Simulated scan of single mutants.
Amino acid sequence: MSHTAHIPSHRKPRRSSSKLALRAGVAGGVLSTIAVAGAAGPANAEPVTETIEMPTLNADLSTDLSSVVAASAEATQQIALDEELQAQENAAATKAAKDAKKAKAEAERKAEAEEAQRKAEAKAKAEAAERASRSAERTTLSASAGDSEDGGQDDGGSSYDSGQATGSAAAIVAFARAQVGDAYVMGSTGPNSWDCSGLVQAAYRQAGIDLPRVSGDQSSRGTSVSLDNLQPGDILYWGSRSNSYHVAIYVGGGNFVGAQNPGTGVVERSLDYDMPSGAVRVL
């Protein structure tokens, strides 16, 4: 082959500029049409509108709602009433407990005061009995000395040789002896228990004579008489006449009847058992 022979090229043949221009024009026209259509499409579209309907309350639903509200209010009011009632019950229980505690303390104080008073009265009676015993001993010694000096002569007027009670004195003596065996109770005036002045007062009432209630006032009545010249019905006293602490009734024969103390009660005893300090005659 000649070196001048034509050798075919392996490269693709070039497209002519006219064909490229035609193709570009067509493509541009198509793109322009699409662009115009896209731009015009939204402008001419109908707007979409969505409406949401709210539920409407009918008459039955309104009635039910009103009932619920009323029931709620009633329940709230009932709760408030229950709480108020509970508070009142709690307050009442607290007050009752305080009152009970106060009453118990008052009862205990009262019992203590009564016990202290009983002890004081018992002590006073014991002291009085002791004084009376010492006085009796002194009186007995004095009487014994007097009997020795006069040779033991009995003039018929001594307290150990009195006659029988008559008249009003008999009523007094009979009543006093009828109470022998009854109990002694401080402040008692019968009919089954007595203190010393209560018994004397009741006995003299049998004779129509009203005596004062207490022993000091009773021993201040009438006229003073000697223990050597006693008569049935005379009032015996222990202590001073204006301030005696014990009284009894002389019943004759050298004896007296008296409400002595809680241990003995009402007894009939010889004057030697507990010699009195003095005597008065009211009849």
Rank of each mutant, 00 (worst) to 15 (best):
residue 277 S to I: 05
residue 274 D to E: 13
residue 226 S to F: 02
residue 251 V to I: 08
residue 240 S to Y: 12
residue 279 A to V: 07
residue 36 V to A: 12
residue 16 S to C: 05
residue 274 D to Q: 10
residue 263 G to Q: 14
residue 176 A to M: 07
residue 17 S to N: 10
residue 108 E to V: 10
residue 20 L to I: 13
residue 94 T to Y: 10
residue 33 T to E: 04
residue 253 G to V: 06
residue 136 A to N: 11
residue 215 S to K: 10
residue 253 G to R: 04
residue 199 L to P: 09
residue 163 G to E: 08
residue 12 K to D: 14
residue 18 S to Q: 04
residue 275 M to K: 03
residue 17 S to K: 03
residue 173 V to R: 05
residue 53 E to H: 10
residue 31 L to P: 06
residue 219 S to H: 02
residue 118 R to I: 06
residue 240 S to T: 15
residue 24 A to Q: 06
residue 188 S to A: 15
residue 226 S to W: 01
residue 283 L to I: 11
residue 17 S to A: 11
residue 221 R to E: 14
residue 75 A to W: 01
residue 282 V to Y: 02
residue 168 S to G: 05
residue 61 L to H: 11
residue 232 P to E: 00
residue 241 R to G: 08
residue 164 Q to S: 15
residue 72 S to A: 14
residue 230 L to I: 00
residue 156 G to Y: 09
residue 190 G to S: 02
residue 281 R to S: 05
residue 217 D to Y: 03
residue 98 K to P: 00
residue 139 T to F: 08
residue 246 H to M: 03
residue 13 P to R: 15
residue 111 A to K: 14
residue 46 E to S: 09
residue 140 T to A: 13
residue 236 L to C: 05
residue 6 H to I: 10
residue 118 R to H: 07
residue 55 P to T: 15
residue 89 E to N: 14
residue 113 A to V: 04
residue 81 L to K: 13
residue 160 Y to M: 06
residue 213 R to V: 04
residue 133 S to E: 13
